[in-house]
Design a binder for these strands. Structure first.
Lengths: 202, 202
DNA sequence: GCACATCCGTACCGATCGGTACCGAAGGAG
DNA sequence: CTCCTTCGGTACCGATCGGTACGGATGTGC
């Protein structure tokens, strides 16, 4: 007996909501928001259409929840990378983590946060904007971390934290696109290491 | 009187086919292949639906022709960049050109070759694959150019032409994504210059 | 003039889109 | 047991999707 909520009224849900969400992540990841139809989603999740709507609200809400789960799961390397001891180690961990996450065997290639909705029609604009904000948030986290690096002296005083953060995010975006195009993990690791060659030295 | 084909039989076309194609480029560029509906396209092009089909075949064929026109027009900087005197000048021209093309005032942000169809549903896979091939072709051109650079001695003998080409394309992809996310031209120019800092020195 | 070929747009096609009304089933509370 | 709430799926909704049949218009070649 766990200490979870005692037991909600009504008929209990017959499927694992997190497992279903994981399946939705894979569909959105490989086909994008607009390319993923409700039939694609319900088939992959193993549930009927009304069940999906009861559990997640709408296709758009499902996407947001899938993005959240993706962030906390397959992209958790990012939060760990921010905790690396030096700014240089952060940069290395971010790019290496990006390469690994974007070329994970058994998963779609690339990054949900990039290819989920890069250019869309008018009605999917909120989703596109949410992904822009998602990427922007990553830049903001990196900027703060590199400002700490400047303050702590592991970056030169002349270093521009925002520029470095934008640079990392740009290279990570590019890696995601190349992974989606079929580039291999070893190739992209070389690219990441080459990009790290411009990292400011003390 | 020009020296074009004398005059085809039948009723002459009432619109400029290249101008219509330019409009289609803008629609595909900003909304992507899947996000661009036929109503979006016909409205922007100023022609009716059957006219579009007579002139271009299908939505998919229209996209391919739009991509071709985009390549020869707004992305012609790439061909010029390849003709720069040294490998380093090529790299600089490619990234600077990418930034400019991706942040051109009055045009959609980003790059049609990236956001036109990055992740799609099953039925749009040929379009996605065509864009992968389009980007791959750019890498192949750069690889050959940098091999010339190694042979000519403007790159160190240890330089890997393919890796350098993949690196440039990766950064260019990332710049395109960031431009589509709203990053400014000056910001991205700084990013491009930072990326060029890893360029191998003689 | 007459054929002929191509273009024009209106009005339509079946298919698929995202989303929901409905009703029976399955649980807890009294 | 009865009530109540939520879940289950079938079967459907209007809207939009990409694509086309068709009849009138407009040009060239004879």
């Amino acid at each position: 007996m766990t200490s979870t909520t005692p037991a909600p009224p009504g008929r209990p849900r017959a499927f694992d909501i997190d497992e279903a969400l994981d399946r939705a992540v894979l569909v959105f990841w490989s086909k994008g928001f607009e390319g993923a139809s409700l039939d694609d989603l319900t088939e992959a999740m193993g549930i009927s259409r009304p069940s999906l709507y009861r559990a997640f609200g709408s296709k758009e809400d499902l996407f947001y929840k899938a993005l959240e789960r993706y962030t906390e799961g397959l992209t958790s390397y990012f939060a760990r990378a921010l905790a690396a001891p030096t700014s240089g180690a952060v940069a290395t961990a971010v790019l290496h983590g990006t390469v690994e996450a974007a070329t994970m065997p058994g998963f779609p290639t690339g990054c949900l946060g990039v290819q989920g909705a890069l250019a869309t029609g008018e009605e999917s604009r909120p989703v596109r904007d949410a992904l822009i904000a998602w990427r922007e948030e990553g830049i903001a986290h990196l900027t703060r971390r590199f400002q700490q690096g400047v303050d702590a002296g592991d970056l030169p005083p002349s270093a521009d934290p925002h520029l470095l953060a934008l640079y990392l995010r740009t290279v990570a975006n590019g890696i995601a696109v190349q992974a989606a195009s079929g580039s291999s993990r070893p190739e992209l690791l070389q690219v990441a290491n080459l990009a790290l060659g411009s990292w400011p030295k003390l």
